[in-house]
Design a protein around this nucleic acid. Sequence first.
DNA 1: ACATAGACTTACCATTTGGTAAGTTTTCTG
DNA 2: CAGAAAACTTACCAAATGGTAAGTCTATGT
Lengths: 196, 196
Amino acid sequence: MPVPTRERILDSSLAAFGLRGYDSTSLDDLASDLGITKQAILYHFSSKEHLLTATIELAVRELGSALAGAADPQARGFQRIEDLVRATFSLAARRPEVLGLVRLVTRQGGTASGELASAMSVMLGEAVRFVETEMVAGRFRRHDPRMLLLAVYSAVVGVATEPEVMRALGLEPDLRSLVKARRETIEFLRAALTAD
Amino acid sequence: MPVPTRERILDSSLAAFGLRGYDSTSLDDLASDLGITKQAILYHFSSKEHLLTATIELAVRELGSALAGAADPQARGFQRIEDLVRATFSLAARRPEVLGLVRLVTRQGGTASGELASAMSVMLGEAVRFVETEMVAGRFRRHDPRMLLLAVYSAVVGVATEPEVMRALGLEPDLRSLVKARRETIEFLRAALTAD
DNA sequence: ACATAGACTTACCATTTGGTAAGTTTTCTG
DNA sequence: CAGAAAACTTACCAAATGGTAAGTCTATGT
């Protein structure tokens, strides 16, 4: 059975908004990519802003399921961080547009970002509690958990989504380099986090 | 004496492109901010793309001087990293648009990015050599220097330029939090980098 | 005094953009 | 099979956008 148009539009807009940006993507661009007319998009989503909202919702779901699938609630200590970093890199390789969109929205912070912001608040809140218990248990070094997570988040998302910086460093952003970047990032975080 | 119009345009476009994005900023927006007409801009810069090129050149200069002013060639070991991180945070607080533009260009990687890419290659090349010698000297833990720098760059620029993520973590992105973020980031990097 | 060049503004223009209105075709349902 | 709702397309439109052409004002050098 064919993929419903509504879903095809969302897939396409997620890719376009996430990789090229919101203002840089016109409804006509999206439509011609899909082989339909702009008005077909406006039939399913009453305005471009509504389309962005729905696209963000999709990205939140994708991000949530990618991370939820990786997080083994049993895991303790650094293993759990490693699982999450691996999942993030996997997502960055498979669907770079998802992290791209997250980043776009977290930076611009427009009206439609409320949902993503709250969804991220929940995830980050859990993460903060986890990191705190690990610190109390002596498995992680003492830092401000929120600042620590900010640094970890930035390092991982940055490494996973900045191919141009990799190029500037003389690294081709192919799969092999990405695998290597993942390994090095994990070791980097391990060194920073784990108590002696 | 008054600031020449050409410089005022560049200042304004650096702020606008760096904080809001290229496509999201129209020449009319820039012009009305400056109290001139769009054609005055096109008199000094023959097209919007040329304006972007000139703006990138300005950002490269600002970034270069900010970092060059901080880098004491005598400094060894972690002190030098700390100097650079402090300079980066200072720049992020004073002129967030500079890092914003760098980030914009490194992500999109359009035609105008050649100069910034090469300028960054030079800076990063020096950094790679520095990190390598520190590793050989046993002052830094052994990592792939390029991957290490990628992680450090991502962590610092991410922390310094993602106020929305700070908000999602329940931190107001004011000056005090930024100072705290700087301190924590430095400690985080110190833990990851310095050999025992 | 006067031509000249620099630094603009006013007046347009073609294209693109998000969006509306009014059909037309397809699909479901009674 | 009737008809109504869903899923579109064709035809527009007003505003915004990057850019051109031509005119105006002002300083400057001769």
